[in-house]
Design a binder for these strands. Structure first.
Lengths: 195, 195
DNA sequence: GCCTAATTGACATTTTCTGCCAACTTGTCG
DNA sequence: CGACAAGTTGGCAGAAAATGTCAATTAGGC
């Protein structure tokens, strides 16, 4: 069952807004673009922008598919194999949104602003934090103590995952992202004990 | 050589503002207190508040001593012994600011808001991120690859350190914080391999 | 084709945050 | 001690972000 008209309209609007915003950011820089301008450029009212994204930084943390009730990631998580889980998630994101129709926002577009704009970075950390919370719950279910579950979940998401993204971007995106994730997870597995 | 009058005035103002803000937060909740009110309650102009703290969340990330050019932490960091480094830092914070005169802001006051207010939490993550950046530089100097340095630094600060703070607070601050830090660092050392 | 529920846009308002400048305070040096 | 320089503060004006409210429009179900 595809999508209802309302869902398609919403998804369209979200993608339109994201694209328009990134275009403006690339053109004039993140700080010099107002939400009124983004809204105007994508044909919605500013109020609607806030309804969809909450804040300007929300552009970088919103999951368009989640906004219409879809979740591509749920089944991919295996608390017993975190390195593998990270690799699967990255691969999923790499292939784009993957709804039949749109090829809209290329994955990792806007990563530049995540790394360079402190406020965006902080917002992304907030989103990672939420993910870590959920992952920690799974680890507890798998028998870890609450304290250890917290540490491990955050280490993989903030350390291995985000660290890999950053290093990959800083290196000019030459080698595949997957390698960086693998490397990051390996650094965790050996406990910083050097290789 | 103690402190110049300007430094003492500034330090006083910073502590006065922090205390007044926390009092107001405890009384009416973080979101319902405006910066104008904090400024009024502590006898400075709103403009001065912004000069000292930058944002409302800056109340939780500002280091009063750094604001007058002091650094108690620099000498404590040993890239070769991260667990020990964390324990030393926590111990330092525990004993308070430690300038001869003031006993002002009790350490960890406001932790509640760090954990409960998403915007504060995100701001603290931003500060941790800066610290992780600096720590990663030290690790690189000690021979780690950039990628590994990133992962390890973030894991210790976001995972072990912040995780310990959170767990300690959630447990009602009964056992000493030091134990939690030790436990968190141990979880990292064994690579999530269970105990 | 209607009725209901969801969604949108417009408006007003509060709050955060910044630039600018004049008034004042502190440090310093003759 | 007394000026001069440098640093610091407060007030004002204004841009931008963010939220509540409500009437108007649009989609969905029957």
């Amino acid at each position: 069952m595809p999508l209802t008209l309302r869902q398609r309209n919403r998804l369209d609007a979200i993608h339109r807004i994201m694209d328009a915003a990134m275009d403006l950011f690339d053109e004039r820089g993140y700080a010099d673009v107002t939400i009124d301008e983004i809204a105007a450029a994508s044909g919605v009212s500013p109020r609607t922008f806030y309804r969809y994204f909450g804040t300007k930084e929300g552009l970088f943390t919103a999951d368009p598919l989640a906004a219409v009730g879809l979740d591509r990631y749920a089944g991919q998580i295996d608390p017993g194999d975190l390195p593998g889980t990270l690799e699967r998630l990255v691969a999923l994101i790499d292939e784009g949104p993957g709804t039949s129709e749109d090829t809209r926002p290329r994955p990792w577009r806007g990563m530049r602003y995540v790394l360079e704009e402190p406020s965006v970075r902080a917002a992304v950390y907030g989103a990672l934090d939420g993910a870590a919370e959920r992952l920690a719950a799974l680890l507890r279910d798998a028998g870890e103590s609450p304290a250890r579950a917290r540490v491990i979940a955050r280490s993989y998401l903030f350390g291995a995952y985000f660290g890999a993204l950053e290093q990959w971007h800083l290196d000019g995106r030459s080698r595949p992202l997957r390698d960086y994730v693998r490397e990051g997870a390996a650094a965790l597995a050996d406990g910083g004990r050097g290789k």
